[in-house]
């Protein structure tokens, strides 16, 4: 009996060995550039340093408490959340508008679909340069002076993200609309639903998972905003458009590392909540066969 089982066990072992080999590149990279830095981040926050960034002292969670309740972090967090508020609802509404407009059997509709999705061809940096030129009061294309207004600077920057996200939002919502069965629309028409009622009673509920997904994607994009800030407003005026990532980036020097680490952990927590929502979402729709 024991002798007969040996080959099976050997093949299991070979399979495990092969799996280890196949997973090794990913595991090594993930360990080195994802898990190790995350551990460093959390630990580094527990140590304070002197002005030269040396002489690390273990201080427990006190530095966390100081930074997370401090004005700097709070300002960054508020700006980041403001950025979410400016870009996400606008992205959802405009994306849906474009998608509904282009979800129609008309001659030449593909041309419009291409135009509506065209902003995916721009990077954050490209979009930021365009809006830097549009918004800058000295170049005067739009003849506004928002970037120097503490209350409007971040909003002005956010226009670049709203515009740049149009293509992605459009593509995602259109894909959602295309999954709504036409029979359902026909049935609703037979029931005497007008186009507006059809949209709100049938289309919107059916594409709500897609809109939820898009919301999460847009929120994460907004929380990660950096190039827009750096290229358009440089965080100004007087720090009024400094988002969390922008602040973290400013804390690279050794003397700032402890504070920057705590801020990054704060960003992680916020991102965690949103990404977890996304993952649960994915989990619900994707079958895990094992």
């Amino acid at each position: 009996m024991a002798e007969r089982e040996t080959p099976a066990r050997a093949s299991r072992l070979a399979e495990t060995g092969m799996a280890a080999l196949f997973l090794a590149p990913s595991i090594i990279l993930f360990a080195l550039f994802f898990f190790y830095p995350f551990e460093q981040l959390v630990l580094r926050g527990l140590y304070r340093n002197n002005a030269q960034g040396t002489n690390l002292r273990y201080v427990g969670w006190s530095q966390y408490k100081d930074v997370l309740t401090g004005d700097d972090f709070r300002a960054g967090l508020v700006h980041s959340l403001q950025y979410v508020l400016y870009t996400v609802p606008a992205g959802l509404i405009l994306g849906t508008l474009l998608a509904v407009a282009a979800h129609r059997k008309l001659r030449g509709i593909r041309i419009f679909q291409t135009i509506f999705s065209s902003t995916v061809a721009t990077s954050v940096a490209v979009a930021s340069v365009l809006f830097y030129v549009l918004l800058n009061s000295q170049t005067g294309v739009l003849k506004v002076d928002w970037l120097n207004d503490p209350n409007l600077a971040l909003f002005g920057v956010s226009l670049s993200s709203i515009w740049q996200n149009l293509g992605l939002s459009f593509i995602i919502v259109l894909a959602g609309l295309q999954t709504v069965p036409t029979e359902l629309m026909e049935a609703a028409t037979l029931d005497g639903y007008g186009p507006v009622r059809r949209f709100f009673r049938i289309t919107l509920p059916l594409i709500s998972p897609v809109l939820l997904f898009l919301t999460v994607v847009l929120v994460i994009f907004a929380l990660q905003a950096f190039a827009q800030i750096e290229l358009i407003s440089r965080g100004g005026p007087a720090g009024h458009s400094e988002t969390l990532v922008y602040k973290i980036f400013q804390h690279q020097t050794p003397d700032q590392l402890g504070v920057g680490s705590v801020m990054a952990v704060g960003l992680f927590v916020v991102t965690f909540i949103v990404t977890l929502a996304q993952f649960l979402l994915l989990d619900r729709r994707v079958h895990y066969g094992d």
Binding site: F30, L32, F33, F34, F35, Y36, P37, F38, Q40, L41, R44, I220, L223, Q224, F226, V245, I248, F249, H251, Q252, L257, G260, S261, A264, V265, L267, F268, T271, F272, T275, L276, Q278, F279
Partner: peptide
Amino acid sequence: ATLLLPIEVTLLPNLHT
């Protein structure tokens, strides 16, 4: 889980590495 750790979060220690 690595999806939860974008470069924006791990920037500082990765720069160190």
